[in-house]
Design a protein around this nucleic acid. Structure first.
Lengths: 183, 183
DNA sequence: ACGTGACTATACGCCACAGTATGGTTGTGA
DNA sequence: TCACAACCATACTGTGGCGTATAGTCACGT
């Protein structure tokens, strides 16, 4: 009888989240995935909402804070931006769950948190752009467009639509140009 | 006893779709909304999938083909692009259902159709840009970025996140600049 | 050795929805 | 007027999920 920790549950749920979205964070399916039953789950968590919350904690850490921390190690702002755009586009597959998140946020009671993450991302990018000499308003405007582009591109591709770009790097280049154009 | 037509069902379902997404196209809720029961529904439709399909027919017509048709009445390419960007941003609220569509497409068996609509939109914009003198590849690249931006922006805003742009026109201006920048 | 707290399984009630079966109503044309 | 097709309601089955109640099992400290 493999004893389970709270973290085992979160890890299994996170996996389901990344490749099937928020709604796949469901008690019984996760239980089946790790060979346990609800009895165990409801000892570790108050309810499904608590699990969703824990999964999104991890998501926020891994897909926003960790990226920022990694990029912060690059000193020169311009290179930092390039670094960011590169790893963000590279890791689109790792953010598969995000595709479902925006629309389902309200229903799952996590709209605030998702909005907060969006703001964090936008602000961070805007910060780099102001460091590059853009005025605040223009920097924010571009940061929003870049963020929206990435999110939107993930959405479009999620349906199986073929962008017919030679590579992801092409997309990265577009974004960079979009951010930096006429600085 | 108000007799219902197939179209009554589609209209009611379309309404639910636009403000709650694809998954809200559910037989029983729609039935309740128009004061009928499943008995009626299954006379007019084979199954839920048929209703979803009909709703997306309408969506494709209203939110893609009709927009293109409207914009086509503007002769000068550059103005046509401005026209397009304007009405697309203006009507974001009318495309509320789209927010859920990309992620849920597969599950609802409509991935092909959504991908086709995406391709239609991208190709159309790319067409205008080549008419403006851009080479094919560059035109497509920008068309993709513009399309992705709009889709992504809808997503971000759907969570209640406040972009803090003074107006939607700001967003439109950004998109235009993004498409046209350095032609 | 044994009791207690940590952990788990089983079984239940509840709800929402998809789809089917069956019989009822109503309008219309022969 | 009556027959039939069009249309609709009711009642049912099946599925899948949430949450709770209850009765375990196991490890460990005393």
């Amino acid at each position: 009888m493999a004893r389970l920790t709270r973290d085992d549950w979160i890890a299994a749920a996170y996996e389901r989240f990344t490749d099937q979205g928020v709604d796949a964070i469901a008690v019984e399916p996760v239980a089946r995935a790790i060979g346990a039953t609800k009895g165990s789950f409801y000892w570790h968590f108050a309810d499904r909402a608590a699990l969703v919350d824990a999964v999104l904690d991890r998501w926020e850490t891994l897909q926003t804070e960790a990226l920022i921390a990694e990029v912060e190690r690059t000193a020169v702002p311009r290179e930092r931006l390039e670094h960011l755009v590169r790893i963000v586009t590279e890791r689109i597959p790792q953010r598969g769950g995000e595709v479902t998140l925006y629309a389902a946020a309200e229903r799952n009671g996590v709209a605030d948190r998702v909005a907060r993450v969006t703001e964090r991302r936008v602000s961070y990018i805007a910060g780099i752009l102001t460091a590059l000499g853009l005025d605040e308003q223009e920097a924010r405007r571009r940061a929003i467009t870049v963020t929206a582009s990435v999110v939107g591109y993930q959405q479009l591709v999620a349906t199986g639509w073929d962008s017919r770009l030679d590579s992801v790097e092409r997309m990265a280049a577009s974004l960079l140009e979009l951010a930096l154009g006429r600085v």
